[in-house]
Write a protein that binds this DNA or RNA. Structure first.
Lengths: 186, 186
DNA sequence: ACTTTTGTAGAGTAAATAGTCGATATTTAG
DNA sequence: CTAAATATCGACTATTTACTCTACAAAAGT
């Protein structure tokens, strides 16, 4: 890991645990084991650091998800894989999940960064539309369907993060997916 | 409105629009039309101000919701009213909704305040349990059901806040409720 | 080899800001 | 009517903190 990565990783943890303002740049540098100057060499401002963190993480997640979705055969199968991958990713990266929870709606992330992040999830729209055309999914407005689908997954993740063992339990996992799927399916 | 309320109202708007740290107490006082000293007379620290705002708003919302839920006759009817009231409240109080979105997961709200806030929504558990016992709702773990139910409503609200007219459209409102309900129902 | 670019360090600074303080005004209570 | 308690003000400060600047080291390019 080069110093830039060290800084980002340290920032992630501190931002989530202490909050944006309660985290001095000096503390980030110290936790990363680099100097103050080095931090500002890589990130012009503290805000650019958090924006970069947001954009980067969202991009990597979207790549993983697109890959995953492709592997599914049926529409339902694709959603199942997508749903599962998002949960697994969140269980594996709880800090990143909490980062999104905490900062997706914060004013520190600027509009442009947010919009670019949303774009990377455009493929979900495609998938939903496909499902609607095949009359597999409910014929509600696409944006509504997407908003609820995402939110349902977030709710599910919150549950599994509180009860980590539950996800391994096949019955519970099945029930959880069924809730998600019945919400969407025609 | 007395000065305490003026402070809280001003703080709400500034916290949501600028963020917690980017809002100096002086700015809050000025926006509220009171002096710096008065603010600290009512709230010992800036953190106590945001915690008070959180607890207060959550309490008032929970009272409204409990009232609403009682009016329903069937289980489904109660959920319908609850669902609707939460959306209407959010459309009427977008700042408060965004406040929760932004600060529910932030470290500025201390554990105790958060827990107390959660307790006020205990009645939802009762309602869900009732529904499960009557075999109207899915037999998933209660916490999962609750987490997803709440999240689904949040997702729905986000949609309606972006398309304010859509809620007035009875078809869309019906579709939105159906998504919510099919997720929960057996 | 040498020149340029890039990376790294850490001391230093100018600005911002949470909270204090003492004085004054207003309300409450006996 | 008086005393105590509560509310209000705004100037002040001690501290914190984002970011700069200078110096040097390492890599890359020629």
């Amino acid at each position: 890991m080069d110093k830039k990565d060290l800084i980002v990783v340290a920032a992630l943890e501190l931002f989530v645990k202490k909050g944006f303002d309660a985290t001095p740049t000096a503390a980030i540098a110290k936790a990363a084991g680099v100097s103050n100057g080095t931090l500002f060499h890589y990130f012009k401002t503290k805000e650019m650091l958090i924006n970069s963190l947001y954009a980067d993480t969202k991009e990597r997640l979207s790549v993983v998800l697109m890959d995953t979705a492709q592997k599914g055969t049926s529409i339902k199968g694709k959603f199942r894989l997508l749903w599962e991958e998002m949960i697994v990713w969140s269980i594996d990266n709880p800090l990143k999940f909490h980062f999104f929870q905490q900062f997706s709606n914060s004013p520190y992330i600027d509009k442009l960064t947010k919009e670019e992040g949303q774009m990377r999830f455009e493929f979900v729209n495609q998938l939903l539309l496909e499902g609607q055309n095949a009359e597999v999914l409910k014929a509600a407005p696409l944006e509504l369907l997407k908003s609820v689908a995402m939110a349902t997954i977030v709710g599910t993740i919150q549950y599994f993060l509180e009860k980590p063992d539950a996800f391994k339990h096949p019955d519970i996992q099945e029930q959880a997916f069924l809730i998600f799927w019945t919400a969407l399916k025609e």
